[in-house]
Amino acid sequence: MIAKEKEAEILRLYHGEKRPVGTIAGQLGLHHTTVQRVLGQAGVDPKVVAPRPSMVDPFVPFLVEQLGKYPSLRSSRLFVMLKERGYPGGPDHLRQVIGRLRPKKPAEASQRLRTLPGEQAQVDWAHFGKLAIGRATRPRRQPDRRDPRPLVGPRPADRAARAPPAPGRREAPRPRAPRP
């Protein structure tokens, strides 16, 4: 909250001396939004700056028509089409305008799966090569196909979700999968 004297000074500088908001803010050491808020509370309508005309403005109806017919049409192709029609600008600004004009894809409904700790386990798959039991080995089925075996345990991304070790205790080393 600013003092009433500062509010009066803001109003005097704005109405009496016709100073802009930024100048008043700099002179009084206030933020420009504070000056705008005081002026708004005093009933001063905020200045609305009219947007400047753009080089793309004459071509917007054509862009809307083309994007309505072909919503997946690339910006580079639209740029070439506008250049043939006399567009004097560059592709970067046009790409931004096309992004605003392009029809949006409808949002898909989805429901997030939420589970409590310990309710669900996640398993990654790894290839271990041949399985040896005693002197017997189980060969691969085909040389080009891998034999997937489950590697049970939390994924590395789930490490952050685990509880930290108790104070004074070290975290046990994680078992590693053997290399093929």
Rank of each mutant, 00 (worst) to 15 (best):
W125K: 09
R155W: 03
G40H: 09
G153T: 03
R12M: 02
P173G: 07
D124F: 10
R145M: 10
K104P: 02
R37E: 01
A109N: 15
V80Y: 08
M1C: 05
V44H: 05
L78F: 02
G86D: 01
Q27S: 09
R100D: 10
A121S: 06
I24D: 00
P61F: 04
G22E: 04
S110C: 05
D147G: 05
V123F: 10
P46A: 09
G22A: 03
P180W: 10
A166D: 14
H32S: 07
Q96F: 07
D92L: 07
L30S: 05
R100F: 02
K47E: 14
P139N: 07
P175M: 09
L113H: 08
A166F: 15
S72W: 04
F128A: 12
R170L: 15
I2D: 04
D147S: 14
M55C: 02
M81E: 14
P51W: 00
F128R: 13
R85D: 03
A161D: 12
E108A: 15
D124Y: 04
R174T: 12
D45C: 00
H32W: 03
R174D: 09
A25V: 00
V56Y: 00
P20N: 08
G68L: 07
L94V: 03
V123L: 09
L30T: 06
F59A: 00
R112D: 10
L28S: 04
P148W: 14
D158F: 12
V80G: 06
Q111I: 06
P164Q: 12
A42K: 02
R149L: 13
A177H: 11
G68I: 04
G68C: 09
L11N: 08
R112I: 14
Q142N: 08
E9I: 01
E108S: 12
P148H: 08
G86Y: 01
A107T: 11
R77G: 01
G22H: 03
P103L: 05
T23W: 11
R145N: 06
D57P: 00
Q41W: 07
V123P: 00
L67D: 07
A177I: 09
Q120Y: 11
P164W: 11
L63F: 08
L39H: 02
P51Q: 02
Q66T: 15
A107K: 13
Q27T: 12
G134D: 09
S75K: 01
R170E: 14
G118A: 01
R112T: 15
R162D: 11
R170K: 14
E9G: 00
V35I: 03
P58M: 07
R19F: 03
T115H: 10
E7T: 06
K104M: 09
K69D: 10
G118Y: 04
L39I: 03
G43H: 07
R159D: 14
A3Q: 15
G129W: 02
G90H: 03
I2V: 15
S110K: 13
S110Y: 15
